[in-house]
């Protein structure tokens, strides 16, 4: 093994020799499954309601009958978005924990350079982001499949698109966390800031922006853009199977998918990648130059 291989193994061992990974994996899987299950039931209930004759005119809008609406798509996207909070926290603790526990000293003493140590850490957390992403997608899928009619589920290519979007979102959220953690250097601070921002601050901000007709700004924000990755994929998939959808309804559908104000999935991905890069490069610069006293 080369020097980089050594450091990769070292960083990976760090992640599996404490209980943090499964301590976060358990709630991740439970939350993803629970949301999948819950949104599945919700979607099914909605379709049952819409299928009653008095709301049947809705079907004219989409050109297909409600029992063919792939309503589970929205739930899948929403569930993935919620569950990626955990890989983000996992990433947030990567460097913050090392600085807090002062193991960063030994880490730097045993690596050829700080850049090499941080690169190895980055690669290992990309892998973990993917592992969490896979667990999230599988758990959500299981929940949704159990609670939805098969006609409401995406087709094979839809599953693949959502799974890919989920994996990308999870990897990016993890990296975003790593960067914020490196910048904050505090375990509690990182966790609180990440959770407060992603769960409260930006949702409040989005509401204010929507009320004032500035929803296109939401797509540029961290949470808005990362939700846009899976949300846009879900909304696009729904619309592509629903025929002609009026513009006003498109907007409503995107909100339902958690992609209100968000751009296309790839543009959302690029925007969130930029946020990740800002946090990561900032955290990297701070850690690479820091005097370890």
């Amino acid at each position: 093994m080369g020097l980089m291989g050594n450091l990769l193994q070292s960083e990976f061992r760090k992640t599996i020799t404490t209980g943090l990974w499964w301590g976060l994996m358990i709630p991740t899987v439970l939350l993803a499954f629970g949301w999948g299950l819950g949104t599945g039931f919700l979607g099914k209930g909605f379709v049952d309601l819409a299928s009653q004759s008095d709301v049947e005119q809705l079907s004219d809008i989409f050109g297909i009958t409600p029992d063919q609406w792939r309503v589970s798509l929205f739930g899948i996207a929403r569930s993935i978005n919620v569950a990626t909070i955990f890989p983000m926290i996992f990433g947030g603790l990567a460097i913050a924990n090392e600085i807090n526990r002062r193991t960063i000293t030994t880490t730097f003493l045993t690596s050829s350079s700080r850049g090499a140590a941080l690169s190895a850490k980055m690669l290992v957390y990309i892998l973990w982001g993917a592992i969490f992403g896979l667990a999230i997608v599988l758990s959500v899928a299981l929940g949704v499949i159990l609670s939805s009619d098969s006609s409401q589920l995406p087709d094979a290519s839809g599953w693949l698109a959502l799974a890919t979007a989920g994996l990308v979102a999870s990897v990016l959220m993890t990296m975003f966390g790593v960067g914020v953690g490196a910048l904050m250097t505090s375990v509690v601070g990182t966790t609180v800031v990440l959770l407060l921002y992603m769960l409260l601050v930006e949702n409040g901000l989005s509401l204010v922006l929507s009320i004032n007709g500035l929803e296109q700004v939401i797509g540029f924000l961290p949470n808005g853009s990362v939700n846009g990755i899976t949300g846009s994929v879900a909304a696009d998939l729904f619309m592509s199977s629903a025929g002609v959808v009026p513009d006003e309804l498109q907007l409503a559908l995107r909100y339902m998918a958690g992609a209100g104000g968000a751009f296309d999935w790839w543009l959302s991905g690029l925007i969130f990648l930029s946020w990740t890069a800002i946090a990561f490069v900032g955290g990297w610069a701070a850690t690479a130059r820091k005097d370890i006293t």
């Binding site: 093994m1 020097l3 050594n6 450091l7 193994q9 070292s10 061992r13 760090k14 020799t17 404490t18 209980g19 924990n97 526990r101 002062r102 193991t103 000293t105 030994t106 880490t107 045993t110 690596s111 006293t293």
Partner: peptide, 24 residues
């Protein structure tokens, strides 16, 4: 060094294995 730390939840053997890989 004085301010060199350990993760309290990691066993001593695992701590050493982590850095054994880094050292090669």
């Amino acid at each position: 060094l004085e301010a060199q730390g350990f993760h309290p939840k990691r066993t001593a053997r695992n701590h050493l294995k982590v850095y054994a890989s880094a050292v090669g």
